[in-house]
Write a protein that binds this DNA or RNA. Structure first.
Lengths: 244, 244
DNA sequence: CGGAGTCTTGAAATATGTCAACTCCCGTGG
DNA sequence: CCACGGGAGTTGACATATTTCAAGACTCCG
C-alpha cells in the first residue's frame, strides 16, 4: 500500500463526485470532507482488509476494481461483492469487517479516518442518508445474487454476470463506445463470484463466443454482439426483455 | 388478512419490545409509536406483499414466521430471507419491495402507515439508528447465505440451516427447554431457502437422524442431540467449534 | 373415511466438478 | 532480443453430487 500524497486532487474534479458517498454534499460539506481525506493506492493482488480487521478508516473506491470475499477453512471461496469506482468500504456504526477486501487491479482509495468521519456523519445528514441508501442498494444486490447462486444454471450465471457488467459500466458514464467493455476479473475470480469452477466458466464463455453473443478483442476487453440473446440467457425474463 | 382490533396491546408488554425496531425507544417515543400502530393477522400461506408492491405500511413481525422469496418466470424460487419475531418489513426511504413476503405460519404484524412512520423517523433518531442497524445485519446475513448457496454441499447447507435455527431461537429467549426447537418450514420451503430440491433435503435430514445428530418428535419439533457433530457438519469450522 | 399435502425412497439422468494435459500469453531477466 | 517461466485459459475424459422422475407411505384435518 502506498500513500499517494502527490495526486491529492480537488473533490470537484473527482471522477466519482456525483455517485460516491459524497454525491449529495453541498460545497461546504465537501470542504469538510476534503480536509479529512487521504488517497491510498494498492497494486493488483494486494489485500486491502482482512476479515476480522478493525476498520481504522473507511473509503471510497476512486479508480480500479476490488472484491469482497469469504473463504472457508478448506479454501473454498465465495465472492460476496464487486467494488467498482464510487463504491464504499465501511459501514455506518460498524467497526469490524466480515470479509476480505482485495484489489484485483491497481486501484486508488479516497480514505477517511473512521472516527472523524463518523463524527462528521452526525452533523452531515446528506452523507448519512447517502450511506444508508448505498447499504440498502448492496442488500438488494446481495439478494439478487442469492437467486443467482441458488437457482441459476452455469450459463445463466455467466450471462447474468456479463449483463451486470454492461449495466454497471454504462451507468458509470463510460464515455467511449457503448460496446467496449472491460472484464476486470480472471476466470477464476469470476468462478468464485458465481459459485462455479474456473473450467465451467471457461466452457460457458467459449460457448457464448461460438454462438456469437459476445466477442473478445483480448483477455480483458470484449463487446456484446447479441444483446437479446444475452438477456435471454440470463433467465431473468422469458421473452428476452424485448419490448416491441 | 384481518385487522385485529381486539388484541391491541400495550407496547410495554410486547414480546418483541427489546429486539424490534422500537428496541431503543424511550417511553415518550414509544407513546408516539403506540398511537400509530395497528395489528394485522395473516393465516399460514397468506401472501403479505408481492414483489413490486408499493409499501403503504411497514411492520414488525410480532408472532409467527414469514419468508422473503424471489421467483423466476419458470417457477424456480429462492428464498432470500426468513422473518422471525422482531424482524422488520420495509426499509428506510424505500417505497417498493423487490421480493414476495409470505406468511408460513399464522402470524401477527405490528403495522405503521409508512408516511407517518417515516415522518417519525426524522424526529426519532433512536428508531432511525435501529433501522439502519437492522438493515446492516440483514446484509451480513445475506452475504453469509451467499457463501452457503455458492459453495456449501447439501449436507453443509442443512447443518448450517439447523444451526441458524438453534441460534435464532435461543437468541429470542425461548423460555422452555433449550433443546426443544421448532422447524417452521416444510421441506419444500427449506429446499427453496437452501437452493436444493425437496428430495435432497429429505435425504440429508434422514441421514442426520440416522446418525443421531438430530431427533424429531414430530414433523415440526426436534432437538439437536449431537451439537459437535452438527457444527462439524456445517463446514464453518474444521474443528467443530470445540473450545475445550 | 377420504383426500390432499407432505415426506420418503429408489433408479436413472445430468449438470457441474475433478483431474490432467496442453496452449497461449506476457513480462522478466539474462 | 530471445528464452524462459509462470499465470491464465482451453479442452477432454471421467467422476459424482444433486436433480429428475416415479411410486408409495404417512398424517393430519375435514
Amino acid at each position: 500500500m502506498t500513500v499517494d500524497l502527490l495526486s491529492r486532487q480537488n473533490c470537484s474534479d473527482c471522477p466519482i463526485r456525483h455517485r460516491a458517498v459524497c454525491a449529495r454534499c453541498s460545497p461546504e460539506e465537501l470542504d469538510q470532507l476534503e480536509r479529512l481525506k487521504t488517497y491510498k493506492s494498492f497494486k493488483a493482488g494486494d489485500p486491502i482488509l482482512w476479515r476480522g480487521d478493525t476498520l481504522t478508516y473507511v473509503a471510497s473506491l476512486v479508480e480500479g476494481v476490488a472484491t469482497l470475499g469469504k473463504t472457508m477453512e478448506d479454501g473454498r471461496t465465495q465472492m460476496v461483492g464487486l467494488l467498482l469506482p464510487s463504491d464504499f468500504i465501511g459501514r455506518p456504526g460498524r467497526s469490524e469487517i466480515d470479509f476480505d477486501v482485495v484489489a484485483v487491479t491497481d486501484l486508488t482509495l479516497c480514505c477517511f479516518q473512521r472516527k472523524p468521519f463518523e463524527a462528521l456523519i452526525g452533523s452531515t445528514p446528506h452523507i448519512a442518508q447517502r450511506l444508508v441508501e448505498m447499504a440498502l442498494d448492496e442488500l438488494d444486490v446481495a439478494r439478487e445474487w442469492m437467486l443467482l447462486l441458488g437457482r441459476k444454471t452455469a450459463r445463466e450465471k455467466i450471462a447474468t454476470f456479463i449483463n451486470m457488467l454492461v449495466q454497471r459500466q454504462h451507468l458509470s458514464g463510460a464515455e467511449n463506445d457503448k460496446r467496449a467493455l472491460v472484464l476486470p476479473l480472471t476466470q477464476e475470480q469470476i468462478a468464485n463470484y458465481l459459485g462455479l469452477t474456473l473450467e465451467t466458466v471457461s466452457r460457458q464463455l467459449s460457448a457464448m463466443k461460438k454462438e456469437g453473443i459476445v466477442q473478445f478483442s483480448d483477455r480483458r476487453h470484449f463487446e456484446v454482439v447479441d444483446f437479446p440473446a444475452l438477456h435471454m440467457a440470463t433467465g431473468d425474463d422469458s421473452d428476452g426483455g424485448m419490448l416491441v
